[in-house]
Design a protein around this nucleic acid. Structure first.
Lengths: 150, 150
DNA sequence: GCTGAAATATTATAAGG
DNA sequence: CCTTATAATATTTCAGC
């Protein structure tokens, strides 16, 4: 992992679909070493994959909410059950276990308010082991999909 | 935006760097219409771009924290100043303005506890307009980088 | 809107310093 | 660890249905 590798990673965080030819010219190297470096970054796991970044609004997903979840108990089985149930809901884009309270932060998207209400009543508030759900809507993305600092 | 387009989007959310040839075979179409559809999805803005997904741990970024920020005032100028200052910190990966309290959720990464402490004392707590910062560490990612539900 | 095909460009590998 | 060279693939465009 030298400066060239970091350069490659920076380019691919901005545009993950440029050709190796283009990538090579941006990092000022010929194609073969660029290719070799890229394979090594992929195989070592530094690059976990490539994702198309979609626009949720353009797909009709206009509602984004955050849920702050406090669990009734914090034993292993309760947490595993909750995590599996949360992961099974497609609208759940992200979920993290936190230190302290609340126990979890969960991010969800939905089409509109009506869809969110249904999701909330029928699925989110019924997740197993939950004591309390506090939720808030996202008004605006101030910083989004920022590349990792290298 | 028909079923084939949604299929294309689903594939590219999983692997954003597959060739059009491979993509075409996965969506059971020949190359040229796949190519045309992809271009249209890109040009219409449904696909905002492609990103390499990096492993923060592999890059030595082992600390991830969430900051819940309450502002002293909520007038336009105060908020703009805060948002620009937050966006200028490379460790800030994500920031959102919320309805209600707190006003902002900010996600940051850093190398380790010492680096986080410095970041917190020297930059995060000094963001302009802030009344209160509550922060918590991320223990574990339960759901990460989930594709959007199509 | 799709198919098939042709010209151009890229990828992946190997030989050699 | 790089450069150059080469064969195999892929991209991009277009004529025709």
């Amino acid at each position: 992992m030298d400066a060239v590798d970091r350069n490659i990673l920076a380019e691919l965080q901005m545009n993950g679909r440029i050709s190796i030819t283009e990538l090579a010219s941006r990092v000022r190297l010929t194609v073969s070493p660029t290719h070799r470096r890229l394979r090594e970054l992929e195989e070592s796991g530094v690059i976990r994959g490539y994702r198309a970044a979609l626009d949720p609004e353009a797909l009709g997903l206009k509602f984004e909410a955050l849920l702050f979840i406090t669990m009734r108990e914090a034993n292993h089985e309760t947490l595993v059950r909750f995590e599996e149930a949360a992961a099974a809901i497609p609208n759940v884009l992200e979920a993290q276990r936190l230190f302290g309270e609340p126990d979890y932060l969960v991010r969800v998207v939905s089409e509109d308010l009506a869809a969110y209400q249904r999701l909330y009543d029928e699925q989110l508030t019924r997740l197993p082991g939950v004591q309390r759900v506090a939720s808030t809507l996202v008004m605006k993305h101030v910083v989004r999909e920022r590349p990792l600092p290298l």
